[in-house]
Amino acid sequence: MGLSALLAFGVPAKYARRFSPQIQMVFAPVSRPVAVVAGWINNRVAPPAVADRRAVQDIRQENQQLHVQVNWLVTQLEELSRREQERSQLGDVKGSCRFVKVIGGDAGSRQSIFLAGSTLAGIRDEMYVLYPGGLVGQVDGAGAMGVQVRLLSDPAFKVRIEFRRFDPQKGQSDKLQIPLVVAQGDGRDGLMVRGLSLAEIGYDAQGRADPHGIRLEETDFAVVADTDCPSLLQGETVGRVVGIARRRSAPLMAEVRIAPATNLKKLSEVWVMVKEN
């Protein structure tokens, strides 16, 4: 017990975690079926709540624009598929992502998920993990018997982001004139941005919106814009702005809350980016 106390309180996390074996796969035979059953019941009993507060008309308009965009993308996709098929005949092209099933969530009080993958499948520490809605997190502990992913909502996760807004007229999203900033997991299923002043996001010191300039609004998107991340990851969606408030400890600074499109701990499958370029 003395050793465990020393390990817990005396040794920095980055060193202590090196000696922690990854054995999550051992629990997969039980935890995976349990998660599947729990997920099914959860969807039946309490379907995911809709956090979108936009007017129905706006959603319809965006839907229409997206239809147009999807049609265009489908055409592009068909063309790309044809090219990809031709290139695959050369035999040296592999996808940059690997599909992996999720075993379950963190057994403690942090924000992580476990994957039914291993280093034998080419998964390594610090690889990024994605799902159709955007970024999930980063591998933080890959072993022969399991992979642990630090979710972007974990307090230890940081990524530099930019804000974008979907323009229904253009049918695409535009970058807002707001400086790049670090978003950090809040430990409560989301992220927060605390490095921007109220003025930088278009609000005055009282928190009132500037009527003339561009201001950050709820439902704007946060996307990855981090030079430390692989180039393929740039522009990947992190989440949507769900709250803008003043920082209690610094009243002239803003605290922007960002939420991913879904509860990342309930994902059943993800993609691990095994090749960065």
Partner: peptide, 25 residues
Amino acid sequence: CFLLGVLQDMVTQQQPGLFAFSYGV
């Protein structure tokens, strides 16, 4: 109880040893 804590430490992002120590106490 200590071993249960050790096991749980292996499946969380928490610092290793934290649950082992807590469950020991």
